[in-house]
Every structure is written in structure tokens, then in C-alpha cells.
Design a protein around this nucleic acid. Structure first.
Lengths: 221, 221
DNA sequence: CGTTGCATTGAGGAAAATCAAGTTGAGTGG
DNA sequence: CCACTCAACTTGATTTTCCTCAATGCAACG
């Protein structure tokens, strides 16, 4: 979160971030239906958020990594609308939302920054809607891989080699595809020598052609 | 917007809302790429927002009616990410965002309310993602009609009879379907006597069965 | 070393896209 | 007022894409 804040502001913000929480792989950060108190800033690890329908239908709404903020959806009703599950051992900072609002009154730049973060989430969701609404399986997967790649790069990891933390089924849920379709799309991209797949490990051989696979360049954040 | 504000607060907010703007049917409230200055509260009318890709791909990201707030996506980069087009003659209030932030510092309930609105938009988008990711054509259309119906009801119109402001193609874009598929889904629902379709006019004959068509009840806002 | 969960692959089928007419209705101009 | 145009809609035939079902592979783990 601390971007565009001066040292004093960061100090004040530090007061708010009450305590850290560790979540084991497979553990829940929060569940749909639970009371909302705090936002969570991811310190390390990897989580997914998903909504679960009464009829069993499930949809992964996002994969989240270090530096991202979780819980924004719950502000509106003060009830979490989704589950947040750790896909690997993770650590988060709890940010009591009431305190955040209080402090942001005295630190305009903090408030503004927070608004930008919420807005970015909306933009991201619109990107996913475009993906789900108008792309074919292979395009969706290409888009997904490029998005991951970029986020790893930003965090100082290789953009060409990384490990997926999620299963094919979770990828499929996020992309609106069945796991078999995801698997086939991986195989196809591998056959074309665009990527190399070894179980959860992905190597991107030809970034340019991967980008071409999706017809558009507006990546999802 | 004014919900949960006292009279004084509303008065102050009134100062912010600088001027009203009329947009003719077919006209643009804002275009993707244009500089963001203000949010827009819809006073009357009906608009769509859509993102347009370089390759011509288009996605309607939402249909918006009286009382809703437009422009939230642009806060993050201060550039509008989508077009907003009036589907009928509409009137909006311009709310300079810088002023809104400034005033919300002195009116905590206004700030909190604004956060809820942004959060609700995120929840809505997640609902659309679920729809696009896991529903069939007919389920999507049922979900869409029920959502419209509810929003008309809230605004004091009939939940059983209403006119669509958008074309089949726009519905299709929003729902991730082609216009022919939308048309067929309409016909199918009509054949089953669940709705009556006459061009843009929709009559819902059997709300219960329409609800059953979509397997879940979490409506999109 | 069998179990278990995840992944791959193939065959067949269902859903939606695409292609192709035709229809309707609103608006325009003769 | 009628013919004309154009855009939006409907419907049918065909093709593509993805889903479903089923078999198999494969690594991790007790």
C-alpha cells in the first residue's frame, strides 16, 4: 500500500496495521458470510478469492499476491461476499477498516491512494469481464499467463519462469473453463513452442507470440 | 447518493455538485482515454458503459440507471477506461472528484458512504464474473432480466413490464453472447410462457419460474 | 506399494457461434 | 400516403468450440 505517502504518513499508517496473521496453505483468511472488520494487505504468499453459490456453482474471482489488498468487496455490506483461501503459506497485515477511514481523514494522500486502489480493482474486474465475455479458451489462458508473468516481474521474480500455485481446476474456474479445457490449452501452447509446461512449472519461451495469442494487450492487474 | 446523510451534509454535498449535464440518446458522457475530473450521478435516463479493444472487440461492462454513479473506474489512473453512452436522453450531475474527496474529509459519513458505493460496484462485477464464467445462455438472460426487473421496481416502476433500452447486440455483449443467441433465448423463454417479448417490451409472466431458470438468486446490482 | 489427488488425452455430444435468409418497424422522401 | 431504406430482430442450417465422460498417467505420501 505505501506508495505516494511520506514518512510521517507511513508511520501513522503503521499504527493502524494492528497485527500480522499467518495463514497456512489451504487455510481461510476469511469466509463468505463472516463479519467484515478489516482489510488485509498481503505481506507474502498467494491467495485466491472465490464466491460459492447455493447450487454448488463456484467462481474464483481472483488470485492475489504480495502487496495486494483483500476485503474491498465486504465494505458495502460489512459481510464478506467471498472466501479467501491461501494457496501457499501466507502472511497478511490486518488493517481495521474503521481506523483506516478515521486516519485517512487526516491524511488526504492516504485517502486518495485508497480510492485509487479500489478503483483499480474495478478496472481489473472489467478486464476479467472482457476476457470472460469475448475471448476463446486459448486467448484466456494466454491472457492469464501474461498477467501472472507481469506480476511476478513487478515483484522481482522471473517473468519467464514461475510456478503456478493453483490447480487446473482453479484456473478454469477463474477463466470460465473446465479443467480439461485448460489442460488442452496448455498442451496446445506447448506444442507451438510458445511455453513449456511441466506440471505447475511454466516457462515462457516466446513472449511475443504469447501476446499475439490474445489479440489485445490490456493486461489484467 | 444521499443515503445516510443528514440535512446539513446533503447541503454541503449540494455545493459540490457543480452542474447538471444533459446527454442526448446516442451521445457520450465520456470516452475511454479522456481525462477524469468528475464522477457522474445519473438523475434520469439510461446509459451503458463499454470498453473497446484495439482489435475491435467490445464489451459492455454495465447498464446504468437513475441514482447510479459513473466514473469510478477512472479514479485509479485519472483516465477514463470506458465509454459511457446514453441509451436514451439522460441527465447527470457532475461531481468533481477532488472536491468530493476534500469534503468527505469533513463528513465521515459521506466518505464511508462513498466507500460503500465503490465496494458495491466491486461486488456487482464479481456477480457478472460468476454469470459469465459459469452460466448458460438462458441462465444469463434470466439473470439479466431479473436484475433489470428489480432495479425498475426499486425506482417505482413495474417489475413485470418494462422496455429494454438496449439492443440485442448490447445485451449480448454484456452477457458474453452473440445477438442471435440472445434472440433465441428470448424466444425460448417466451415459448415456455415465462415472459412475453414484443420487440423491446418485456412482460414477465412467471417470476418464480424465471428465477428458477438461473439456479441462483444472487442478483447483480 | 497401494492410495489419493491432480493432470493429460481421447471420443462423443451439447451449446453457442457463424453464416444466411427473411421479417419487422421506424423514419425518410417522393 | 405510400414506397423505400435501414437497422434491428428472428429463425434455420451448419460449424466450431467447449463440455462431458472415461481411461490413463504420474508424483507425493502414508
Amino acid at each position: 500500500m505505501p506508495v505516494g505517502l511520506n514518512e510521517n504518513e507511513i508511520h501513522v499508517l503503521g499504527e493502524v496495521v494492528s497485527h500480522k496473521r499467518k495463514i497456512q496453505r489451504g487455510g481461510y483468511l476469511h469466509r463468505a458470510g463472516s463479519k467484515f472488520q478489516s482489510l488485509y494487505a498481503i505481506r507474502s504468499g498467494f491467495l485466491k478469492t472465490c464466491i460459492l453459490e447455493q447450487d454448488g456453482r463456484q467462481q474464483v474471482t481472483g488470485f492475489h499476491m504480495t502487496g495486494e489488498l483483500l476485503g474491498l468487496d465486504a465494505i458495502s455490506t460489512e459481510i464478506h461476499t467471498c472466501d479467501a483461501v491461501a494457496l501457499e503459506d501466507s502472511e497478511v497485515c490486518e488493517i481495521p477498516f474503521a481506523k483506516l477511514e478515521e486516519i485517512s481523514r487526516t491524511i488526504p494522500s492516504l485517502m486518495h491512494h485508497f480510492h485509487k486502489i479500489m478503483s483499480r480493482e474495478i478496472v481489473r474486474d472489467h478486464g476479467v469481464m472482457l476476457l470472460l465475455g469475448s475471448m476463446k479458451a486459448e486467448e484466456r489462458l494466454a491472457s492469464f499467463l501474461l498477467n501472472l508473468s507481469r506480476r511476478f516481474l513487478i515483484r522481482g521474480y522471473s517473468e519467464y519462469n514461475f510456478n503456478l500455485r493453483m490447480t487446473r481446476e482453479e484456473i478454469g474456474s477463474y477463466l470460465g473453463l473446465k479443467l480439461e479445457t485448460v489442460s488442452r490449452a496448455f498442451s496446445k501452447l506447448q506444442d507451438e513452442n510458445i511455453i513449456r509446461v511441466d506440471n505447475k512449472h511454466i516457462q515462457i519461451n516466446d513472449m511475443t507470440r504469447l501476446r499475439m495469442k490474445m489479440g489485445n494487450s490490456s493486461c489484467i492487474t
